[in-house]
Design a protein around this nucleic acid. Sequence first.
DNA 1: CTCTGTAAGTTTGACGTCAAACCTTCCTTT
DNA 2: AAAGGAAGGTTTGACGTCAAACTTACAGAG
Lengths: 340, 340
Amino acid sequence: MNATIRDVARRAGVSETTVSLAFKERSRISEKTRQRVRHIAAELDYVPNEAARALRRGSPRTLGLMVNDLTNPFYGRMVREVEAVAMAEGYQVLVSESQFDPTRELGNLDRMLQARIRGLLICFSETTPETVPRVRDMRIPCLALDTFPEGYEGPHVVNDLAAAGRLAVEHLLAVGCRRLALVIAGSVGARFSSFARLESGFREALRVAGLPCDSRQVISAGWGIEEGYAAFAELRRQAPETDGVLCGNDLCAFGLLSAADEAGIAVGPELAIMGIDDLPFSALPRLNLTSIRQPDRELAECAAQALIESIEAGERCSVKLSLAPRLIARSSTLAKTSVL
Amino acid sequence: MNATIRDVARRAGVSETTVSLAFKERSRISEKTRQRVRHIAAELDYVPNEAARALRRGSPRTLGLMVNDLTNPFYGRMVREVEAVAMAEGYQVLVSESQFDPTRELGNLDRMLQARIRGLLICFSETTPETVPRVRDMRIPCLALDTFPEGYEGPHVVNDLAAAGRLAVEHLLAVGCRRLALVIAGSVGARFSSFARLESGFREALRVAGLPCDSRQVISAGWGIEEGYAAFAELRRQAPETDGVLCGNDLCAFGLLSAADEAGIAVGPELAIMGIDDLPFSALPRLNLTSIRQPDRELAECAAQALIESIEAGERCSVKLSLAPRLIARSSTLAKTSVL
DNA sequence: CTCTGTAAGTTTGACGTCAAACCTTCCTTT
DNA sequence: AAAGGAAGGTTTGACGTCAAACTTACAGAG
């Protein structure tokens, strides 16, 4: 049905190899022939058959992208941007969702490998430490996207969470908070997490400001709305005097905020709450959540580009990039001293 | 690197074809041999090479899934469910996003066809009428998911939007509203849209209730938060006496709700607002949006299953399914008569 | 004892692409 | 004039799978 390289060759009166060559830059073929062949190919609507290519080279032009939660718009944007870059480079993207479940994640990884992906972008989650060594030992280029856990030493394109932590503390202090808390995913003690960097940024900024920081100020929660909601009770129990909270992501902050509302606490004046991600929803006046915006577009773009480059170069990926975040102040951290 | 059918054949002392046959049910091969071959294959971690299969059969085991907006959690869930079914059946999913842009959508469709997808699930949008004939004329099984436009006559698995319209009207009337409006995507006059069914359900229920319904009660908007926000002004202009609104989706409702808040209108008592989708965000106490929950899981599952079945059967898909929605009442349509 | 039929395999070839190795010309160089 | 080289091709074969066509062995019929 579709034109093959053979049809083009026949029509152009050259060999199949010549046609193949005509589509490679810098190949030993005369410019004249190249143009002619390309022209004929275009006429015939010739598109190289991916399956045949894949068979020949041993693997298809496919990238794997593992995200945690497809219903979180943040990951949706990752998928969008990665696909855009991949498409431009002629790659397909195999999207997979871990749902924060180690078993599922490992299974998905296997599936991707069986599909012979040529490279992997992975958004690690804190709940799946098993994945780290597996990814490290993969023989295709892999790149951590958005965040990565402590033990991971590999290439990455992530948000500078330490900077985010600092930014948040500075902001919260500036609006008059004095007892800060951090609500993040991962378990106490073995905070196996890129959130450790968030925490260290957080602690460091507190230290610089001359404020104490003990472990009760760090609450373990999860990534979702529910978990944020539950974290509020924990916060009350563990650090009741808190007047400013930074949550690991916006979803979690929404939950916390709901719980605070319910408890009759004035979010902003009594308890400042902020998140990380700056989801579109955070700008809704009713939520109006102060958040830290990650440069998601660049993030995904850089990562995808870098990954594809290493694939083409046949080398291990070596990018290590931390992108600076930006604070978006809204009323969930309304200054205590300001007049409403 | 990976074991091939040849390795298995050699090890089992049979021909390659026998190995191939051993993996097909109902093939003319003795049960004994089948078991032995399968066992050896498992031992060698043999996984059939997709690229080779794809080359042989002319197309890979790949499904196309076109959604409108990856940052809308609703579509995220579609992707999730479709992938789950596809994976179980040994198919890959090629996800594509139209972003409500006809050019992009047609381009994506082309790309998918070039990737030789074997079937297509498409969430039509109102803004891309060009796609309808293109999809109709595709020679692979296609299935409309979630919704489909007026001109489309093909197979589909959708939400029963007429029922949603009725449900909404009944609910709004029950909580005491008397002047209803509908905010939906598409342009007046040529409401090229499955929303026409929503509208007809809406109108019908009004008629049954003995209430008038003129065209000013139907506002054209878009799908996003921004568009919902803008629609509020339009609503005030076009139908200022409105006391109950149904929005085409939750995102749009969030925008409308924000604008109403801003205008100092009490959402609920003064103006009831409801959406369709029941996103997780809608349950946030601060938003607390009454919504119509679509059975998204079944939707995606049925669709994916049906599509794969037609692919395997080599027939055109013929499923036409409308799934009943369910109303989730929250305070954005709080009864006027109730005490807050 | 030959003939036909069936069950259980095997051989062969093709799907489309593209390296690697192999030819021609034609031009330089000494 | 012979040797060498480069430019621009072409031929060949293999990637892994699986129909289709072909073979063999054996059972039962006549």
